[in-house]
Every structure is written in C-alpha cells, then in structure tokens.
Design a protein around this nucleic acid. Structure first.
Lengths: 209, 209
DNA sequence: AGCATACATGGGTCCGACCTAAAAATAGGC
DNA sequence: GCCTATTTTTAGGTCGGACCCATGTATGCT
C-alpha cells in the first residue's frame, strides 16, 4: 500500500492482467467478427466467463475495449518535445519523431490492420472516442509547450502552435487509415506516409522557437 | 411536393416550427436550471406537453437540443472561402471573416452566455458533440479547398491546410469560452479576441495560395 | 369533400452506464 | 498453515437514451 509497488509479479497482479487481456482479446475478436455496435457487454462477459460488472470494471467505457492504447497515444507528442535534445526546435523534434514512428509502424500514427480500421471508422462511438484522444493529445502538447522556455507564459500561443503541430499528426493519421482502407499493404503505407510527413512539416511555419 | 417549396407559411410548417421552438426553449430552460445530464427526454416531453417520441423526432440526439446551430457552425469557414472576392488569399479571407464574426458577436466563434458555456463544457456528451462539429467544419473547409484552383487535385495538402486554419478558429473558440468562464463581459471578450485573432493568423504560414 | 401524406402518439425493446451488498480470492501477520 | 484485512468479482437491479411499430389524427392538394 504505502510501498505501492506491490511488484507486478504478485499473484493478484498477474491474474488481473490475465483477466484484462482475456476480456480484451475476446472482445476484439467478437467486434471484428460482427461489428462494434452489434456486440453487447453482456455477450463479451459471457464469452469471457466473467460477470458483466467485471468487464465494466476493467473497461469503464465500451470504447476502451477497442482503443486500449490511450496513454501512449495521448503522450506521443508531448513526450517527443520533452525528450528532445537541448536546442532542437520543437518542429524538428516532431518531424523526427514522426519519421521514427512510421519506420516502426507504430499504432499511434495510424498503423493497424484493415479490419481494425474499418471497425473504428465505421462506428460513431469509436470515431468519437478517437476524436477525444486527439483532443487530449493536443492539450498535452500545449501544456508541454507552455512549460518550454521559448513559449513560457504565453498560453494562447502555446495552444495555437500545439493545434498546428497536432493537426499535422492528426491529418497524417487519417491519411494512414485512408491508405489502409484503400488496400495498400503496410510497406506501401509506410513509404507514402514518410513522404507525406515530410511535406506536412514543410508546410508548417517555423513555429515554436 | 414537386415544387417542394410548400412555402414556410403553411399551417403545417408553422406548427412544426412552433413545436420545435417550444421543445427547444423548454429544454434549454431545464438544462440551465439543473444541468444537462440531470434532465431526461421524458421530462422535457412532459414539460412541453408532447410525446417522448416527438422530442426524438425533432432532435434525434439529445445534444441537438442544446447545440442547435450546427449547419451555420459547420459551414462558416468553407462559406467564407467560397464567397471571398476573386484573388483574395484563403488565409486573408478567413482572417477577415473571423474579425467580422467577433464584431458581430457570432455564436459560431464562441459568443454565448456564461451559463451556456458551463453547460456545454461541463457535459461530456455536449463536449463530444462540439468536437464532432469542429471536425465536420474542418472537413467542409478541406472539401472547399480541394475544389479551389490553387490546391486542386492535391487532397492531402487541402486537408493539411484546412487543419491549420480550422485549428486556429478552434483554439480561438476555446479561448472565447475560457474568457467567458473567467467572468469577462461580452465587450471585453470581443476586444481580446480581436487581438488574439490577429496574432493567430499572423502565426500561420501563408498556406493555401 | 375526400384522399394521400406527414406528423404525433403510446407502448414497447434493447443496451450501456451505474449502483449496492455480498461472496470469493488473495496478501500479510502471526 | 491459519486468520484477518483488503481487493476483486459477482448477481441482480435501476435508469435513461435510442430506436421501432402500429395506430390515430391533422393537414395539403385536387
């Protein structure tokens, strides 16, 4: 409790992770088979062999069963800025980080299987949750920029710059989904996005520093 | 029917508008009194003296009862671009239109009473709907830009530029809400926004043309 | 005036979100 | 190893929003 780090190897922790993973896997399978809105929480619980409330405990909202990378997704840009080498302009750091994410086929920039892409884009609830995540990402970046020496104190400018930069990432994410839906394979998508990313960041004014 | 313009003075049309307006007014009053989530559709229907389904017929989603300016809100930017004088750069048109909207205290750029602002921002459902409207606004602008001679054919660039421009409007809208919540009166808000708008558009690269 | 259309009604279903009390499982002290 | 405190899971329920249907009623058109 005090030493809250009840090591993640404890029986309790392990079982929790197992239960969580099992629920998530079963839910994903059902969603891909039949579509997001046509699977109910009760069905997932039944299929996973747990109580309805257990599903809700692990995933407060149904959308969380699908979009389970929230933390990483939201923090991506703020982290890239915070961890950049001293003296590097913000825009350069984000351009670099984007290229890296594409090279690594990271989900946070839009890499996913076609069925998953369709699942998310065809469901109003999931699309709404994705918008919310983009919004949180932009806010996190704005907070980080406001804490930077260069922008310090000027919150409005920080928010404006964050909107420009996060906006580029968001459009590129949508482009990734579009390409995947159009049937391009991962390698093609990566190639096109690398070039699109370069163009996107060239378009941006040298804002931030 | 064929000459579908069954003039809006017909009895049927008038009654429809009355019913709609009456439901909307009563709903707004209840929401401001008790908060969005603590008023049910059934209560609104009862207070308005109509059937539950009638409320649903006019306002398919509960959020529509509050955010009833969707069409105007969504079209604002695309329209400003479409209707600008020949030869005027896109960015200039939007800068001009923003100043005009502020001068006119238009709701589409964030002018509203403080209770209304709190109502919207404190409700997850309404905040989500607002995000959706911003998204639709950006898409409408992107579509308009893609149809412009200068950007024609390059959809990705159109989407990137639209994100930058619509992003500025979105941040300025949030700033308006923030100022209103902080207790500034309409005149103060207008003054601050006029200046903030100028800064926001200065920050943007000369994109679009 | 009469007929087709469109609107409103009431009665229902379904599901996600949430609650509560109690049961089951585990961790830690002894 | 046992007992107790804590955490996790369970069962069964309420509530509200979205939706559907058949029916009734009012309006517009000819």
């Amino acid at each position: 409790m005090l030493a809250g780090v009840t090591i993640d190897g404890s029986l309790r922790e392990r079982k929790k992770r197992q239960t969580r993973q099992s629920i998530s896997d079963i839910a994903t399978r059902l969603f891909l088979e039949r579509g997001y809105e046509r699977v109910t929480i009760a069905e997932i619980a039944a299929a996973a062999g747990v109580a309805k409330m257990t599903v809700t405990n692990y995933f407060p909202r149904k959308e969380d069963l699908v979009l389970d990378i929230a933390e990483e997704f939201v923090a991506l840009l703020a982290r890239a800025v915070a961890e950049r080498p001293a003296g590097e302009p913000v825009r350069d750091a984000l351009r670099r980080r984007y290229a890296e994410a594409v090279a690594r086929r990271e989900a946070a920039v839009g890499f996913a299987g076609e069925p998953f892409v369709r699942l998310v884009e065809d469901s109003p609830a999931l699309a709404a949750r994705l918008r919310e995540l983009f919004d949180l990402r932009e806010r996190a970046l704005a907070a980080q920029l406001a804490a930077e020496p260069a922008t310090a104190g000027d919150d409005l400018t920080a928010r404006l710059v964050a909107a420009q930069l996060a906006g580029a990432y968001r459009v590129l994410f949508a482009e990734a989904f579009r390409l995947i839906r159009a049937g391009h394979d991962e390698e093609q998508v990566a190639g096109i996005l690398a070039e699109a990313g370069a163009r996107a960041f060239d378009l941006l004014a040298t804002a931030g520093d």
